[in-house]
Computed example of a mutant assay.
Amino acid sequence: MIEVTKGGVRLHLFIQPKSSKNEIVGSHNGLLKIKITAPPVDGKANEGLIAFLSDYFDLPKRDITIIRGDTGRQKTVELLGVSEQFVREKLKL
């Protein structure tokens, strides 16, 4: 679910687009499940995910990158400039 990298942390996610609200649900098959209101059309769910993570972790959008899974529900997202401890505290893990 959380992987430490040289510049920050990578999150392994399962995304549920077109939900009623943006929220972090919890663990799902070893991945962190996040619901996003944006539909999975023309990259809108990816944009919605980055915007949500930016607000949630109080990071600029430029510090959040989708590394893997652009078109799928399983994604790997890198957060630059944060520690594993910070992410675990924010996620209450």
Rank of each mutant, 00 (worst) to 15 (best):
M1C: 08
I2P: 05
I2W: 04
I2A: 03
I2Y: 05
E3K: 11
V4K: 10
T5Y: 02
T5W: 02
T5C: 02
T5V: 09
K6R: 10
K6T: 02
G7S: 14
G8M: 07
V9M: 00
R10N: 07
R10S: 01
R10V: 04
L11V: 07
L11C: 06
L11T: 03
H12N: 15
L13V: 09
L13C: 06
I15C: 05
I15S: 05
K18W: 09
K18R: 12
S19C: 12
S19Y: 02
K21M: 11
E23S: 13
I24S: 01
I24A: 05
I24E: 03
V25C: 06
G26L: 12
S27V: 14
H28T: 05
H28V: 08
N29V: 06
L31P: 00
L32N: 03
K33F: 09
I34V: 15
I34E: 06
K35T: 00
K35V: 01
I36F: 00
I36E: 04
I36D: 00
I36S: 02
I36C: 02
T37K: 15
P39Y: 01
P39A: 00
P39H: 01
P40S: 14
V41P: 01
V41H: 10
D42A: 13
D42S: 11
G43M: 00
G43T: 02
G43L: 04
K44V: 01
A45Y: 04
A45G: 01
A45R: 02
E47G: 00
G48D: 05
L49Q: 07
L49I: 11
L49W: 05
I50N: 01
I50T: 09
I50A: 02
L53N: 03
S54L: 11
D55A: 13
D55E: 15
Y56D: 05
Y56I: 03
Y56G: 02
Y56F: 15
F57I: 09
D58K: 14
D58M: 11
D58I: 12
D58R: 15
P60V: 09
P60T: 08
I64R: 06
T65E: 12
I66M: 00
I66S: 01
I67K: 06
I67H: 01
R68P: 01
R68E: 15
R68W: 13
T71S: 12
T71V: 11
G72V: 12
R73L: 14
K75Q: 12
T76D: 07
T76M: 07
V77L: 09
V77N: 07
V77E: 08
E78D: 08
L79E: 03
L79Q: 05
G81R: 11
V82N: 07
S83H: 10
E84F: 01
Q85V: 07
Q85F: 04
Q85T: 11
Q85L: 08
V87I: 09
V87M: 06
R88D: 06
R88K: 15
E89P: 04
E89I: 08
E89T: 14
K90Q: 14
K90D: 10
L91G: 06
L91H: 09
K92G: 10
K92I: 08
K92V: 10
K92F: 09
